[in-house]
Design a protein around this nucleic acid. Sequence first.
DNA 1: ATAAATCATTTCGATATCGGAACCTTAAAG
DNA 2: CTTTAAGGTTCCGATATCGAAATGATTTAT
Lengths: 126, 126
Amino acid sequence: MDVEFDELKALDIWRRAIVKSVRLDAPDLSARQMSLLLTVYLTPPPHTVRGLANLLKVSKPAITRAVNRLTGLDMVRRKPDPDDKRSVLIQRTVRGSVFLREFGDLIVTAAKEESSSRDDVLPQRY
Amino acid sequence: MDVEFDELKALDIWRRAIVKSVRLDAPDLSARQMSLLLTVYLTPPPHTVRGLANLLKVSKPAITRAVNRLTGLDMVRRKPDPDDKRSVLIQRTVRGSVFLREFGDLIVTAAKEESSSRDDVLPQRY
DNA sequence: ATAAATCATTTCGATATCGGAACCTTAAAG
DNA sequence: CTTTAAGGTTCCGATATCGAAATGATTTAT
């Protein structure tokens, strides 16, 4: 019961945050892309294609594609590894930091609102 | 200061949850698709294409596409509106409920983990 | 009854992503 | 030195999604 209540609350915070993000016309990132972005920003470097593929349990080409997308958005960047010229380090960017800062703020705001105002949830016709 | 800390904590919970979801090979939903799914499950019906488009501030064809995807996954279903034959109601399914239940559990679990070990995992700045 | 507005989908050409195999470069092993 | 392994990208055909305009079906307004 308590668990179910927590789950519902958690899901609702998640909903509020992601709905706001979509409404703000943020880049429409997939779960893979978002998980990669968050990993690069919130876990200790170095981050490599191989390492991210293992962590997320997806193929290396899938990581390459996600990095391509995020690089196109200037949210991460590739840096050749000086110690192993086969390897590429995935690093942060200013834009990525800004995006995640704002996204974090959306979550915090959503958590604070937490079922106080229901203005934005009511369907149109009533 | 406190705000930044909360944001970081929130982002890290988000990271843990979404990384786990990706690792579990859950459907790779986009932000739009996830926001639509959560809205259908957590806000009061009825849900229509038009209403969802207004709520998420995206075009109606974008909603149609997202509903197509989620329908293919059997996570929502279309039901013709008996009162207005132009309209289509987007409704829940068993599979969608199960998915969100599990996803909610991932968030709750991530939130519990977070409070225990954070210093080891988080970088100094983001 | 006719015209206008509404709801959702379809179409269009273009781009993005899919999984998996093949590829290239570099590093390590023999 | 040659061979094998590792790291990452590119290729392949196929599918998915993009925004914008057009379409079909139904409802509302004149």
